[in-house]
Amino acid sequence: MGKLFDAALVLEYAPPIFLRFHVTLAIVAASVVGGTLLGLLLTAAQLHRTPGLSLAAAGYISFVRGTPVIIQMFIVYYGLPLALYRVGININRWNKLYFVLIAYALNNAAFMAEIIRSAVLSVPKGQSEAAWSVGLSGFQAFRRIVLPQAFLTALPALGTRLVNTFHDTSLAFTLGILDMLGQAQAIGVRTYHVLEGYVFAALVFVAVSLLLEKGFTRAEAAFGRGVKK
C-alpha cells in the first residue's frame, strides 16, 4: 500500500506530467481564439435589430452559461458527429482532442460575448457621436474609438475569464484526453500513487493562475496610463 503521500514522488512525476502541459495550452488557445471570434459574432447578433437573431444569440448564451462545461464537452463529443453525419460528413475517426477544442471554443464564446457586449455598451454614446462628427464612418468609429475603450474596460473581466478557461481545461481528462490530469491519473493507475501527481498538477495550476493575474494587473496599468477617468 505504501505511504499516503511521498514528496519525493512529486518531483519524480513532475516531468512526465508537465510534458502534457501543451495539451492544456492548446485547449486554452482554442478557447481564446475561437471564443473571441465567435463571441464577437454573438455580440453582433445580440445587438442586431433582427429579433430572431438576437433571441437565438441570447438563448445560446443562456444555455452555455447555465450548464456545466463538462456536459457541453460530452454533448459536442457525441452530438457533433451525429449532426455532421446527417449532412454527409463523417468525423467518427477524429482525434478526441478536436472535439474538446471545439467544445471549449463554443463554451468560451458565450462568456466572451457577454464581456464584449457589456464593455461596448459601457462606452458613452458621445464618443461615437464625436467620432462621426469628425467624419469617421460607423465602422471606423467602432474600430478606432469604441473598441479600444471597451477593451480597456473589459481587461479585468478578460483576465478572470482567461484564468477560468484555464481552470476549466482540467475537465478534459474526463473524456480521456491525456493532459496533465490525464497523465497524473495514468501514473496513478500504474503505481497506486495518484495524490502526488494531483498535487503537482495543482501546483502548476496555482503558479500559472498567479502569473496570469499578475500579467493582467500589469497590462491594466500599462494600457490604462492617463486614459482612465
Binding site: 464625436a130 469628425v134 467624419g135
Partner: peptide, 26 residues
C-alpha cells in the same frame, strides 16, 4: 464639425491625437 456640450474628447487618445483622428482616418 461639431463641438459638444460635454466635450466628448476621445478618452483613449491624447490631445494631439484627438485633433489628428478626423484628419488621418476620415
Amino acid at each position: 464639425a461639431m463641438v459638444f456640450q460635454n466635450y466628448n474628447l476621445f478618452s483613449n487618445k491624447t490631445a494631439a491625437e484627438n485633433v489628428m483622428e478626423g484628419l488621418v482616418t476620415a
